[in-house]
Amino acid sequence: MAQPNILPYKQPRRELNLREKGRGARSNATGRYEPLTRERTDEDWDALPDEDRKPVRTTVTIERPRTIINKVVSPYVGFDRSINPYRGCEHGCIYCFARPTHAYHGLSPGLDFETKLYAKPDGPDILRRELSKPRYRVRPIMIGTNTDPYQPIERDRKIMRGLLKVLAEFRHPVSILTKSALITRDLDILAPMAERGIARAMVSITTQDRGLARAMEPRCPTPERRFDALGKIAAAGIPTGIMLGPMIPGLNDSELESIMARAASLGASYSAYTVLRLPQEVSPIFQEWLEAFAPNRSKRIMNHIRTINGGKDYDPHWSRGEDSEVKTPFRKLIAQRYYHAQKRTGIIARDQRIPLDCTQFRVPESVSGQGDLFG
């Protein structure tokens, strides 16, 4: 009997920039403000056994800022202040628009962003001091709009929990966005705040495909755990939203309706979506990942993205305008699909929510030294 024609197995060529398990970025390109550019080559790297390559470890540097409340000036967001307990994010989401912020500190928006983190342990004390100032004027504070306050290092450092305790003490309104199930740890603080109308939370779910999520968001909780967290938040009486995004044409946009439907069944009452943004260094980092994860679709996906952005990798005037200003077919289609999904599920848009109550804010007696007239 003739033997089948079996070709000898050939070890695939391993690129240096594909070796970091559990990380999103494939490389660590020099930041745009550095005077020198570093380039890596793969000479002799294929000869190095896997067991001899040391993985990139996460390091945490303590940061002592003078202020903790950030002023936000942007026509594309509906808030004017935020708090970031951490800089950098170990979740490693390949599409994260916050990656370029590491370049301001002489670090790479690539692997450095997800492995060289900064923590602000004095954040709660600084927040208490800022809220106690006579000239402070209360407006809702957003947490989680840059890097995730519930990323893995929060489990031990508990800076976010400390911030929430201060906000509860001052009866200060807060809105949270996270990809982490760790938020359920703080339901004991958030639920009483929600009863007062001063807290709400959104859970970000990009895909229900566990394989895609693991590749795209390597150190985030699985989609199943995030859906479970969403249900627990809603069950605790906290106004709960679902953030769909980013929607990436040809990769995960087909899941928009199914994610919304499942979130609604678990108690989500409001929603929002974003379309992929690739500002500055995020574009080459994302494209490098895309070529590795979906080489057969990468060119088509990038063509869609450039069409959304008027021919560029990113142009906020094209990709971030209001629905009435949408100029491209894909953005129009996403907006229409989102609108119809809202009607089917009963989920309202984020801008239709009941506003958080700012009238209950007060400096507690423990800080002011004065009695609380209203209990």
Rank of each mutant, 00 (worst) to 15 (best):
D188F: 09
T41F: 12
T37H: 11
T101P: 03
T37M: 09
I285S: 00
L36K: 10
F113N: 04
I242S: 02
P192G: 11
R157L: 10
K54N: 10
P85N: 05
P239V: 02
G371K: 13
A47N: 11
G22R: 12
L333M: 13
A234V: 04
L244I: 00
E154G: 09
I68C: 05
I126F: 08
Q342Y: 00
T145K: 08
K158E: 07
A25T: 12
I259W: 00
D315L: 13
Y9W: 13
I143T: 08
L163A: 07
F227E: 01
N84K: 07
R129K: 14
N146A: 12
G310F: 05
K158N: 11
Q370S: 11
A229Q: 05
K21S: 14
T41V: 15
R66E: 06
A263W: 00
L18F: 06
P49Y: 06
P329Q: 11
V60E: 02
A236G: 13
E20P: 03
T207Y: 00
K120Q: 14
K10A: 10
R87I: 08
V72Q: 06
K120H: 10
S324E: 15
K343R: 14
Q280N: 12
T359Y: 07
D148Y: 02
R306Y: 08
E39I: 13
H105L: 14
D156I: 11
V73D: 06
A335C: 10
Y86F: 12
L251T: 02
R53N: 10
R297C: 05
P364T: 06
T30L: 04
I242L: 14
D42V: 13
I233M: 03
P364D: 06
T184Q: 02
I198E: 01
L16W: 04
A25Y: 04
E20R: 13
P364A: 13
E34T: 15
L177D: 01
P173Q: 07
G346A: 07
T59Y: 05
M1D: 14
V73F: 08
G31Q: 07
T61W: 02
F361V: 08
K179S: 00
L212E: 01
